[in-house]
Simulated assay, not measured.
Amino acid sequence: MRSEAENPWDIGLQNERTTLAWSRTALSFVVGGLVVVRFIAHSSTTLAIVFAAVTLPLAVVITWLAWRRYRRGQHRLHGRSPLPDGALPGAVAALAVLVGIIGIVYVLLS
């Protein structure tokens, strides 16, 4: 068993808090995406469907990546190996850019 001097913090709590933060981020994208779909639907139903078809599955992918990152992080923290890659931050950045571009297109077209 490891002593407190070797491990001054609980190995799992930091990883769990990070996972919950990523889950909240994905949830906020879902809610924000649904609000944007509602606004876009007033002017173009087709654009609203395309927006929903692209952004909502990306939010599901972010949630899946967060839980996968949690499992891999737990395994690696206990094995003292390097932490997971940056696929999750990349997916969130791509979704944020996509939402921003569609928002700009909506403003310019309306």
Rank of each mutant, 00 (worst) to 15 (best):
S3W: 12
E4C: 06
A5K: 08
N7E: 15
P8M: 09
W9Y: 15
D10L: 15
I11N: 10
G12T: 15
G12F: 11
L13I: 12
Q14A: 13
N15V: 14
E16S: 11
R17A: 07
R17Y: 10
T19S: 09
T19M: 13
L20R: 14
W22L: 10
S23T: 13
R24Y: 11
L27S: 13
L27R: 13
L27K: 12
S28V: 11
F29M: 13
F29K: 01
V30Y: 06
V30C: 03
V30P: 00
V31C: 11
V31T: 12
G32W: 02
G32S: 03
G33P: 00
G33V: 05
L34F: 03
L34S: 04
L34H: 07
L34C: 10
V35R: 07
V36R: 05
V36L: 08
V37Y: 02
R38T: 06
R38A: 04
F39Q: 10
F39T: 07
I40Y: 02
I40K: 02
H42F: 12
S43I: 14
T45E: 09
T46F: 03
L47A: 07
A48R: 01
A48P: 02
I49F: 04
I49K: 02
V50I: 11
F51D: 03
F51A: 06
F51C: 05
A52I: 08
A53F: 14
P57M: 15
P57E: 12
V61D: 06
V61L: 05
I62P: 00
I62K: 00
L65Y: 10
A66T: 13
A66W: 02
W67P: 01
R68P: 06
R69E: 08
R71P: 06
R71M: 15
R71V: 15
R71G: 14
R72L: 15
L77N: 08
L77I: 12
G79D: 10
G79Q: 11
S81P: 00
P84F: 05
P84Y: 04
D85L: 10
D85K: 09
P89D: 03
G90Y: 04
G90N: 07
A91T: 08
A91E: 01
A91F: 01
A93I: 04
A93M: 07
L95S: 00
L95G: 03
A96T: 04
L98M: 08
V99E: 02
V99N: 00
G100N: 00
I102F: 04
G103N: 00
G103M: 05
I104S: 01
V105F: 09
Y106A: 01
Y106E: 01
V107S: 01
V107D: 03
L108T: 12
L109N: 14
S110K: 11
